[in-house]
């Protein structure tokens, strides 16, 4: 494979694994209308829990399951802070995220757990032996595709249920949801738990794929999630909920491809990426307002007085 093609494949497979995190952020950011800062911590929690479960010899899929529960717990804490203790949602997420830093270090016992090399006897999903002679990146692609597809289907189904609809409506109009008899404290709590469960699954898969879990692996995850959502929304038509979810996954893939290409073909180093992403997301969030201002400016320019003032 050419280096361009191989960076493309690697971008796609990474994008699929990170897409699950972006889908989690989609639940909180778009459906619940909360910028959930827990994500940076719960992504690492997912990686940390997966790593110690694998070190203890458990099956890598079981490790992901435990990570999912840990992510739900993280979401539960943010949910309690914001719905039961009335701390603003943004601050609740930040508090959980800060707390999780300690907890993640406690889980791992150190800042980094390698899952390859000296620990190569550990089972890893990404060492999956396919019947045909598949490359490592093809296996990663396959695993990412399976997980992301299953999660998109489950999300689509869930948000079509009575409770799912109530969660969607909570982000849209909480007063109406209460008037229709659903407890918005609980719908918010559920949404936060689900979102962070997905984030932790993503963290667990990324840790397995990259071959280590690191205390800093979740830093900036929320911003990457937002970038994926926005890319998806710009490039994908909002026909229905399927398209939105698939759009988020594609947004994540495109983000990864861009990052991979930048690292390969530009003088930017990996530590430059966070600033780059932050700037891109800031510009993207500014865009709707900017376009509105441009329209208003044009309208003003074309609104020429037909006669003089008094």
């Amino acid at each position: 494979m050419s280096s361009f093609a191989s960076s493309l494949v690697s971008g796609v497979s990474q994008g699929l694994l990170w897409a699950i995190m972006a889908l989690g952020v989609y639940i909180t950011f778009r459906l619940l209308d909360i910028a959930d800062m827990t994500v940076d911590g719960s992504f690492t929690t997912g990686g940390a829990v997966t790593a110690i479960c694998m070190m203890a010899g458990y099956h890598p899929l079981f490790a992901i399951l435990v990570a999912t529960l840990a992510g739900m717990l993280a979401g539960l804490i943010t949910g309690i802070l914001t719905t039961r203790m009335k701390i603003p949602a943004l601050l609740s997420g930040i508090l959980t995220q800060i707390g999780l830093y300690t907890i993640n270090l406690r889980i791992m016992g150190k800042a980094n757990i390698p899952l390859t090399g000296i620990n190569s006897q550990i089972q890893n999903l990404f060492n999956w032996q396919l019947p045909f002679n598949a490359s490592r990146s093809a296996v990663a692609l396959m695993i990412g595709l399976i997980f992301t597809s299953v999660i998109i289907v489950l999300m689509y189904l869930f948000f079509g249920t009575e409770i799912g609809a109530a969660i969607r409506a909570t982000g849209n109009n909480p007063a109406m949801v209460r008037a229709l008899g659903a407890n918005t404290k609980n719908t918010t709590l559920f949404g936060l738990m689900m979102g962070n469960a997905l984030v932790a699954i993503s963290g667990g898969l990324v840790a397995q794929q990259q071959g280590y879990s690191d205390i800093g692996m979740g830093t900036g995850a929320i911003v990457i999630g937002l970038a994926s959502i926005i890319i998806g929304e710009v490039l994908f038509p909002k026909i229905n909920f399927w398209f939105r979810l698939i759009g988020v996954a594609f947004g994540s893939i495109i983000y990864r491809i861009v990052i991979t290409l930048i690292l390969r073909y530009s003088p930017l180093k990996s530590y430059d990426l966070k600033l780059f992403t932050a700037i891109v997301v800031a510009l993207a969030l500014w865009l709707p307002y900017l376009l509105q201002q441009i329209r208003e400016h044009k309208a003003r320019r074309s609104n020429i007085p037909s006669r003089g003032g008094v």
Binding site: F158, G160, T161, E162, I163, G164, A165, A166, A169, V177, L180, G181, A182
Partner: peptide
């Protein structure tokens, strides 16, 4: 959603 006012919301289709 309005037709579910007053009843438990579960995993039935909305």
């Amino acid at each position: 959603m309005a037709s579910q006012r007053g009843s438990f919301r579960g995993l039935n289709w909305n």
